[in-house]
C-alpha cells in the first residue's frame, strides 16, 4: 500500500434505514474495504441509521441480503469504534438491548466533537 505511513481518522456516518435504499449496505461495503487500510476508522449511527443495528431483522421475505450481522462482526475487521446517537435511539423507542452489537452510546454533542477531530467524514 503506497500510503501506509499515513493514518487518517475517517468516520462513516449511517443515517438511513437499511433496506428501503442501498446507501447503508454500500456504506458498509466501503467500511469493510477501508478496514484493510490500517486507518483509524469509526462508524456513527444517527437518525434512521440506528435501524441498521436492530436485532431480529429477517430479510428472507424481501429477498435482500441481511447485513446486521456484518455490522456485528466489524470488530473482526479491527473496526471497533461504533457510536450510536442517544437521541436517535430514544426517538425510535429503542435501547442498547435492541442492537445486534456492543456500541458506545453518546450524546450528539459528543459525536459532534468526534466529527471535528476527523480528517474525513463520509455520510452514507
Amino acid at each position: 500500500m503506497e500510503d501506509d505511513e499515513i493514518v487518517k481518522k475517517i468516520m462513516h456516518v449511517m443515517r438511513k434505514a437499511p433496506h428501503g435504499t442501498i446507501y447503508t449496505y454500500e456504506g458498509l461495503e466501503m467500511v469493510l474495504i477501508m478496514a484493510a487500510y490500517d486507518q483509524d476508522i469509526s462508524v456513527a449511527f444517527i437518525d434512521d441509521g440506528v435501524y441498521a443495528l436492530k436485532i431480529g431483522q429477517n430479510t428472507e421475505g424481501i429477498e435482500m441480503k441481511g447485513f446486521a450481522k456484518t455490522f456485528g462482526a466489524l470488530d473482526g475487521y479491527d473496526v471497533e469504534k461504533l457510536y450510536v446517537d442517544q437521541i436517535s435511539l430514544e426517538e425510535r423507542g429503542l435501547t442498547e438491548d435492541d442492537l445486534v452489537v456492543d456500541v458506545e452510546i453518546l450524546s450528539s454533542a459528543e459525536i459532534g466533537k468526534l466529527m471535528t477531530e476527523q480528517d474525513v467524514v463520509v455520510h452514507h
Binding site: 503506497e2 500510503d3 499515513i6 487518517k8 475517517i10 446507501y23 461495503e29 466501503m30 474495504i33 477501508m34 484493510a36 487500510y37 486507518q39 474525513v120 463520509v122 455520510h123
Partner: peptide
C-alpha cells in the same frame, strides 16, 4: 476500479468533497 482506490483518494488528499444523497 475498486474501493481501495477510493480509500487512497480519501487518505492522500487535503479534502474529500461528497455530493449526493
Amino acid at each position: 476500479t475498486g474501493l481501495g482506490n477510493f480509500t487512497d483518494i480519501a487518505i492522500r488528499n487535503d479534502r474529500l468533497m461528497i455530493f449526493g444523497d
